[in-house]
Design a protein around this nucleic acid. Structure first.
Length: 298
RNA sequence: GGAGGGGUAGCGAAGAGGCUAAACGCGGCUGACUGUAAAUCAGCUCCCAACGGGUUCGGCAGUUCGAAUCUGCCCCCCUCCA
């Protein structure tokens, strides 16, 4: 089995820098496990590695989409797995670095996605109650994990059933829920309070570095706040400002808050969805990685 | 000094005698997660040895079977007049 190292953790803990350090130490290449840094032009707000950082290690899956483009787990899974194969074939270590939990899990674990075309909107006019009842007929087991208020998931589960004549719960039941690689997942963490402090500082720095101008230029290119890429934290909050409904300072405070909440959700996902180890101390993490890499060698 | 308005849980803000440990919002915490995931959604949030108990609505003293809600005094805050 191919070895894959993954570095995960909440936003602003320092994954980017650590990833580069590891790529250099182990002769690896970085696969970005991030759903926003794929967009060209979303640099500052997505905390994309700088030009300088990009030059210090080979990075994959960054700047691969136009801001008007769409992206999904399935695409990430395909691309990331191809990167893993190619990097391994070169005799180098693939290192996934990122904070998008679902993407990383889908690439590493035996998740199965089918080829699908455009999403249809046939359920748009249904109430949640109606969707719930429909799903109860088609895939009742899926309801164990989907709350009636979670409209998006209800519709998705129904769409899956329509397209494959098989419920999402059945598809999941056919999987083993195990990684398909020999992988080591390292979670980088720090005290909550310190993390929140780092988030605040980073947001302030983004503003200084010209986040507003970045958004301006995206809008000028024809990107709108309704586009997928603009759902990102650090971008969507400025819609209210641009429409005059909030002051700049209020929007900046929103970005900080959304980032904090996001960091918490990331913790929850990684902690409960992945088999992994947390490290506050990078040196200890490196020791663990050393041991893992040497495992099986004579 | 005078006239009004006000002090409610971390914050904002309802409530105006029992149905109130106190609506709602925010913030915070916890969790779910298989195709927009930086998304979407759920629960908890006065204290405790907790299907029960203990303390609350500026303070103290009253009225009442019963008070955050009524009365008196006191302390703070805001606006206006001097």
């Amino acid at each position: 089995m191919e070895k894959v190292l993954a570095i995960v953790g909440p936003t602003a803990v320092g994954k980017t820098g650590f990833g580069i350090q590891l790529a250099r130490r182990y002769d690896g290449e970085i696969i970005s496990g991030d759903s926003i840094q794929i967009y060209r032009g979303l640099d500052i707000g997505s905390a994309k590695p700088t030009k300088d950082e990009l030059s210090q290690a080979v990075h994959h899956l960054i700047d691969i989409r136009d801001p008007k483009g769409r992206y999904s787990v399935k695409q990430f899974q395909d691309l990331a797995r191809r990167c893993i194969r190619e990097i391994s074939e070169k005799g180098k270590l693939p290192i996934i670095v990122g904070g998008t939990g679902l993407y990383i899990k889908a690439a590493l674990y035996d998740y199965v996605f089918f080829d699908e075309k455009e999403e249809d909107n046939q359920y748009e006019d249904y109430t949640n109650q109606e969707l719930y009842v429909l799903l109860q007929e088609k895939d009742p087991a899926a309801l164990e994990k989907i709350h009636i208020n979670n409209r998006k998931r209800l519709i998705r589960a129904l769409n899956i059933y329509e397209k494959h004549q098989k419920g999402i719960s059945e598809i999941k039941a056919e999987q083993e829920h195990r990684p398909i690689y020999d992988c080591l997942v390292i979670g980088l963490t720090c005290e909550r309070q310190e993390l929140y402090h780092r988030i605040d500082e980073r947001v302030d720095r983004m503003i200084e570095e010209g986040l507003l101008q970045e958004i301006q230029s995206l809008l000028k290119q024809g990107v709108s706040f309704d586009d997928q890429c603009m759902q990102a934290i650090g971008y969507k909050e400025f819609k209210a400002y641009s429409e005059g409904n909030m002051t700049l300072d209020e929007c900046i405070a929103e970005v900080k808050k959304d980032s904090r909440n996001f960091a918490k959700r990331q913790y929850t996902f990684f902690k409960n969805q992945l088999e992994m180890q947390w490290f506050e101390d990078k040196e200890l993490a490196i020791e663990t990685i050393d041991r893992w890499l040497n495992k099986g060698k004579s």
